[in-house]
Nucleic acid binder design. Structure first.
Lengths: 205, 205, 205, 205
DNA sequence: AATGAATGAGCCTTCATTCAT
DNA sequence: TATGAATGAAGGCTCATTCAT
């Protein structure tokens, strides 16, 4: 198991370093994190990190991109949903909870967006455009379709950002309490779905 | 106006330092902020900061408490609301937007909760207990009253955290985009109110 | 003796540091010299050096300017010379040996010009224009005057750079052998004067 | 041309490395030069350099010896000179300009003698004994012969170091200005020859 | 109360050198 | 012979903190 060839080792190193960097940056923040501690997490010395990443800043950016990758296929899955608009909206919300809220890596990505945004504005804007915006666009398209079909009522509430907001808010609560408090996630999600679907429902329902 | 006695000067110093610290900590984060830059903001040297605060950590905690003060009277105002439960809920939500979302200082307090939470967990927990929890309790009490009075339907949606979540989410969006993008706040708030009130409304309404 | 006030100490620091830097840069060269060793020479820590000079590069430039100062009054003295042109040329050459060749600080300045010129071209050019050029101009004026007066013969040899060259060459020998070999300075100077004066002498002399 | 057998390649490697080292050491100085950059100049990696030279220090010494080789036959040519002593001295001086002053490699050797002398005193002393001293001895012998033959006057000026000094001084000027200034070499050489020959000429001439 | 010179621990980054491939 | 991943000892520079004035 421990016997990897040099070439194999090398191919794995960047991802290893990035994963270690993720943990260290989360725990300490960009400035307080030490390159040496990142290296130590995978049993190498700091020189090795510099073989792959020229500066701490580049390492951070690369780490952010690396972590964001799995985020991308949430969208792919969102496109495959079936059923009435209400059913599909419900599924979209649930998908968001499962894949974003419940995945530590994407959750922590939001922490970086908030805490290191001043230092890496470009990074944040790119991530927003690539990850968040498409989900909002998908959600909005779904809502608009529901309105056209008479499933949802036409009114100001038909705004995807607001409909999905409780999921974002729960991630924030999770980041703030960081395991020190019970979020009552199942009940929260149920309330969210209930509010969204009732709030959007056409008057005759 | 500029002529303050030494005694007056002295009485103001701590608040001055705390305000300067707030700005610097926001822009740089706890670790990257420099005591010397905080001092420079009010035209003194770093030695002066140490006259009032023994360490950078203590300074940060004091700053957080100092910034949180105006937050407290949101609650007082919330208690004075009149009208039907729906009207009062509406007012409570609007109050939250006006006094929290729109106030830079309380908004940035949330940034600290997210970015420095690992370093100052006690601080975060205290703030949550003193500031957020009472508002949620007040909101929940209002909703529960509405349910008892038949104004609101009885169901899972009747959860204050979810009802208020869009306001929290908008603050987060504000922190992330930091002025680089239009949040469409008025439309967002309208949608939030519309969703909350329709989502909670009793069926016969 | 050891009792200096803070203010006095501070006023002396820059010069102290610059003198220490001079010694260290000579012994090690710019790149190999360590700021910490410079500081240690005057019994302070490296942080202190950075209180006065923001980078090692700036420190080096400041040191070069500091060392070059005494150089300047060689020129002033050169202007005061009396006697025939031959006597004044003789005195100028001797002045150069006494004040430049025999002064360790100006001698080492030439080493920096040669060894660190690639790194600090501006510095070298400035020094050349301020220190060497005026001496050559003075020497050339003297020679030209001698020619006009019939004291010196008119010919290609009447070129100050060549007439003074042996002095420069001796400095170079001194830098190369660095005390490991006897330069026979008195005999060398005598030969230089003899060559210059006979070489320039009008045919009839 | 580009097709060399491995064996040929191998035989050339050391010289290639030494040439590359020469360039890099000139541009950066011993300490600042990087082994990796030396390797890159000939399209290999630093490991290769270590195959041939165990340390950077050894590499530097080897480079100095390698560069000095062509220097040696200046002497051989000097021995072949014909004509009167004045003619032979003239030729010797010109030979020195052509072969030393005008050859970048030997010129830069002088820079190393001055800048890295403290680090490699043995190297400098060896070079001096092998390269400079013989030339001075040859020059001195020639002058002495001229004196004996009545061609040159007997006096202090008859010192080879002083007679040849302007050539050394011009090399130094070349090193200092490094192409940023016109040295007026032809005129300078003419002046040098004129001064030397007039300065040494017997009184009756 | 305010200053700012001085400290020294600490961190990012570099690079000569090693060695398994 | 050549490679280049990995090491680890440095070294430049920063900054929280101290303290004499």
């Amino acid at each position: 198991m421990k016997k990897l060839t040099r070439a194999e080792q090398k191919a794995l190193r960047p991802a290893q370093i990035l994963d270690a960097a993720f943990e260290e940056f989360i725990e300490q923040g960009y400035t307080a994190a030490r390159v040496e501690d990142i290296a130590a997490r995978i049993g190498v010395t700091k020189g090795t990190v510099y073989v792959y990443f020229p500066t701490k800043e580049v390492l951070f950016s690369a780490m952010a991109r690396h972590i964001a990758v799995p985020f991308e296929d949430v969208l792919a899955d969102a496109k495959k949903l079936n059923g009435s608009c209400a059913e599909r909206l419900r599924s979209l919300i649930l998908l968001f909870y499962e894949r974003v809220m419940e995945d530590r890596r994407t959750r922590e990505l939001l922490r970086f967006a908030i805490s290191e945004g001043v230092r890496f504005p470009q990074l944040i804007d790119d991530h927003y455009a690539e990850l968040i915006e498409p989900i909002l666009v998908t959600g909005q398209a779904l809502i608009d379709e529901g309105v056209r079909q008479g499933e949802f009522r036409d009114g100001p509430a038909a705004l995807a950002r607001v409909i999905l907001a409780p999921a974002l808010a729960l991630i924030v609560e999770a980041l703030i309490h960081d395991g020190r408090r019970d979020l009552e996630t199942p009940r929260y999600i149920e309330a969210h779905l209930d509010l969204a679907l009732h709030g959007l429902a056409a008057a005759s329902s």
